[in-house]
Design a protein around this nucleic acid. Sequence first.
DNA 1: GATCCGATCCTAGCACCGCTAGACAAGAGA
DNA 2: TCTCTTGTCTAGCGGTGCTAGGATCGGATC
Lengths: 192, 192
Amino acid sequence: MSVQERKQRERAERERLIVATARELAEQQGWDAVTTRRLAESIEYSQPVLYSHFRGKREIIGAVALQGATELAVAVRASTAAADGPRERVAALARAYLDFAERNPAVYDAIFQLDGGLAYAQEDTPEPLKDAFAALLECLGEVAGDGVQPGLFTETFWACLHGLVTLTRAGRLPPHETGPRVELLVDRLAVL
Amino acid sequence: MSVQERKQRERAERERLIVATARELAEQQGWDAVTTRRLAESIEYSQPVLYSHFRGKREIIGAVALQGATELAVAVRASTAAADGPRERVAALARAYLDFAERNPAVYDAIFQLDGGLAYAQEDTPEPLKDAFAALLECLGEVAGDGVQPGLFTETFWACLHGLVTLTRAGRLPPHETGPRVELLVDRLAVL
DNA sequence: GATCCGATCCTAGCACCGCTAGACAAGAGA
DNA sequence: TCTCTTGTCTAGCGGTGCTAGGATCGGATC
């Protein structure tokens, strides 16, 4: 049985390599540059090997998204844990979120913009995605205010951050005043 | 000179046809389905004709975006003109914006998500885009509150609406509670 | 009216894309 | 050592955006 186990290990290792390489390529040159040919060449296998791990390019994007969601949850929780007081926690969360998007634009797109074949906001939503939302909810639920459901408030606040990220990154908003915009959001939306 | 004039008219007419057809195709089957081959076939010309009007597919998307921005500005102004009082005006604007995005998803993407080769938030930004932002500013600038620049407030409010639109349309937010989310935005962000 | 010439359009093709069928080789088990 | 499964690769399909170069059509000129 040891032979099969070794093969399984090697397969899993190669799968990690595919995801990591796709992510790297996407961050360096954008998702458009992540073609199955280039990806295959980068991992030093032929194209069809990719399809023995994933149904297609979409599933590879999905795998990157799940990895990214896990990291985003960690980053958000770390930022809020280190902050004192509700206002500072919300501000820290917002900064951490924007920071993640800025540092990992391709991963951010995989999670929130591209089609990775994942289910969102449903029962069969993968755990990393649920957990990333939960990380937001843990902090933002506290400042929803009376008569506003924590979930609804979190969704709305999150949407605002997402709007800032995408409009800025798409060149629709000048980037230099992101700070004041976020402050405005925190001050007005959160009930402290 | 009349012959040249006629030819110019026909050329302009064909250009309108290209843009209208691209828009229609995109709304019906999504931008991925708007290929140069399909588009050429729809207007009953060969592919290279498209390139005698536009540098490439990107510029066609840009043309649709400009058309859409003009319509968005009209829709926003119409909604705010028909509303009484600041709060009702802001709420009407938000509804009109979301309504436009829902009714014209492909056009919305052309304006705010896709690369149409247009300059945004710069001096050489095309007039329709500037005017669409101006339409938002006219209404939202009134409710920015003390010490907050109207432009900055408009950008932030707009980003929130944009976040709601994109997350909802990408399946990241359940669509049925859009109403309460918008109410939350209007009540908290606008200073009445 | 015949001829010329420039504008206009189309055919055919490039390099690339995601994806897959089928040939082939390597290695485990008898 | 031989067989057979498993895994990998080559080659190719139909599609993409885009373009070079030839054909054709129509207005201007003699």
